[in-house]
Design a protein around this nucleic acid. Sequence first.
DNA 1: CGAGAAATTCGAACACTGTTCGGGTTGATA
DNA 2: TATCAACCCGAACAGTGTTCGAATTTCTCG
Lengths: 235, 235
Amino acid sequence: MTDTDLDDEAKPETRRARQRRELLVEITDEARRLLETGGTAAVSWRAIARAVGLSPASLYTYFDSLDELFTELLLQSYGRLAAAVEAAVGAFADAQPGDRLLVGPLAYRSWALANRGQFNLIFTDQLPGYVAKPGGPTVEAQVAIFRPMIAVLAEHPESDSGQSAVKMPDADREADVGFWAVFHGLTTLEVNHHLDWTDAPQIFETQVRWFIEQRGLPSASEGLVERFTDWSQNT
Amino acid sequence: MTDTDLDDEAKPETRRARQRRELLVEITDEARRLLETGGTAAVSWRAIARAVGLSPASLYTYFDSLDELFTELLLQSYGRLAAAVEAAVGAFADAQPGDRLLVGPLAYRSWALANRGQFNLIFTDQLPGYVAKPGGPTVEAQVAIFRPMIAVLAEHPESDSGQSAVKMPDADREADVGFWAVFHGLTTLEVNHHLDWTDAPQIFETQVRWFIEQRGLPSASEGLVERFTDWSQNT
DNA sequence: CGAGAAATTCGAACACTGTTCGGGTTGATA
DNA sequence: TATCAACCCGAACAGTGTTCGAATTTCTCG
């Protein structure tokens, strides 16, 4: 009954280890599904246990508590959002800076609308217990989301716009946060149905474009939103 | 059975009615306290029952379900935020337009930081059941928050900034939403501890000021943030 | 291979939650 | 005062997270 197969006799993965790894994926997948369909309140041990065919008590072999499961879900959501942004910006690596600067927010918004539960899990405190520790892994995941966009911004440092008589050291960072605030504000409002009475996509494109231009960056090309949409669907 | 009273010796409030009214306030106050201290998960019938000295079952005389209590809390939060913004803008009614336009976001942010639970209850979907009906009372409460700021913006329609060659009818509304997105984005990020690594107040003032100026509006005066802080504390 | 150790699973139980129901008690009304 | 609705409560049901002990399966190593 020993698994002599594979090639040589080195056991890179024991049978238990593989099942544990697969079950971890099943658990988090089901938890994510419940989160997206019914919100955080719908994520329950017993619902997950029914889905994966285990007893609720057995799940404590994989996570010490429900908060730990949410923490894992939170970190995965960070990574997924960062990967979505990075993939989009990377796909338009040859485009002009203005285009690349618009693609980031577009991917940001697109992922958020397709993963509302995870987006809210990231950006609004829903778990009473959890607060981000200063050296914790969430701050790294935080900056990973904006690394691609910051890189583009760094190539055009603050240009001429506004009060740049004296070169303040934090001016660039402040401008970056301001840029973030624009497309994050629009995104979170749309995600939570606070822009249903408007043409949200149109406003998003117009405002982000306007913000980029006012900052003195080269403006994005005309049909970029369509190009992004096409690329997004073929992926 | 016709209530013939109206003016004279009629009992303007029966004893039971007064107690019911007071208990309604006690219930919502305690629910709000629990919401601010422990989030939505901490708001439970039994905790409220312990606080007000009633049985959990008795509370169903006042609300048909916990969702109804949250709906009431949501509507009250809308009203409180709107009142805070309106009071601040009203207190600076004699100031210049740029000042009045900055006071609104300042009050918005200030209230949000002091009432994080209610702010998140308003702007992120936390109750799986509730969605805003098109004619519901939340849309009215929504616009009530921005009525004072929209009024100031309407006095200076879009000015000259940017692409106003042709006068698009929705341009003003889009600009208003863009303005909202800036200070709402910064506020919701700060409320949920995503700007702890920055000088959040400084960024808020700089970015909102910059946005106002780029829109061609008269800039706010120098010590306005201090003036608002003073007014806020003496209220 | 076979014995001991470790990991995994499960059922039962505890404390907590929202909600319903039946029967009392109290207050307003005529 | 008599009636009736409003109010309050205890008990109960179904659901939740979590713990514990025992049974079972799997890995490890002599």
